[in-house]
Nucleic acid binder design. Structure first.
Length: 224
DNA sequence: TCATTAAATTGTT
DNA sequence: AACAATTTAATGA
């Protein structure tokens, strides 16, 4: 996709703003390029920006003092995140890492809050975002308590295809099984078995370092 | 462009 | 956690 299209796609929500508000977004926005493996932000840093992914993928994860890591979610092109910490005025709760070469849009906190104060459509957009994240999180909690490991992996993969949180996701997931293990909180070995089970069910196809998702709805409802 | 090698990833135990 | 098999990426002829 052309760079300009990526940008337009990520900023689709500005279509409901007034010309003045759009102008404010344009002038306040800061663009950053990250290469693969580079951190966008770390746990504990001040939350000065609301963050949009123009292209590439960002991984959000937390680590404990003992060095254990788990991945919370991934945000692909067109997705926005970080509004929670900005709204609460607290420091970042998660590490954000660029998985591939990534272009990021930063909306400074002041501009973000100004938009909330001045645009009802923007409020609606953010509310929808928060609502989807909540539903997504509940789905994972529900699944982790009521379903077996195979369904957990299925559900974790399905959440990556949430149209609101990850609008541009194509069916190809460039994720190693190790990454999926971090994302679903299971061992790589168990994830490997689950993935083969899901492949048998024709919900996805396994390739090296990549998964082709054939049936998102099927993954979402697997085992239920 | 091809072959070799190292590194990463996967499938099993 | 460990191991072998497989795939990819990097290097240099």
């Amino acid at each position: 996709m052309a760079e300009r299209d990526d940008m337009a796609h990520a900023f689709a929500w500005t279509e409901d703003l007034t010309e003045e508000q759009r102008h404010r977004v344009r002038t306040a926005m800061i663009e950053r390029k990250l290469s693969a493996g580079e951190y966008l932000c770390r746990q504990g840093e001040p939350s000065d920006y609301w963050i949009g992914v123009i292209s590439g993928i960002v991984k959000m994860s937390v680590s404990t003092a003992t060095g254990e890591i788990t991945t919370l979610t991934k945000v692909a092109a067109g997705g926005w995140f970080g509004e929670g910490s900005v709204l609460k005025g607290e420091s970042r709760r998660y590490d954000c890492l660029a998985i591939s070469d990534t272009r990021i849009a930063l909306i400074p906190r002041a501009a973000f809050l100004w938009l909330l104060d001045n645009s009802i459509p923007f409020n609606r957009f953010v509310m929808t975002l928060l609502n989807e994240r909540l539903a997504n999180s509940f789905a994972i909690i529900e699944c982790s308590r009521l379903q077996g490991p195979d369904a957990r992996v299925a559900r974790c993969l399905a959440t990556l295809f949430n149209p609101v949180l990850n609008p541009s996701r194509d069916e190809r997931l460039e994720l190693s099984q190790e990454e999926i293990a971090l994302l679903s909180g299971m061992s790589r070995q168990r994830v490997n078995r689950a993935l083969h089970k899901l492949e048998e069910a024709r919900l996805l196809k396994l390739e090296h370092r990549r998964i082709i998702v054939l049936d998102v709805a099927g993954l979402r409802s697997y085992g239920a």
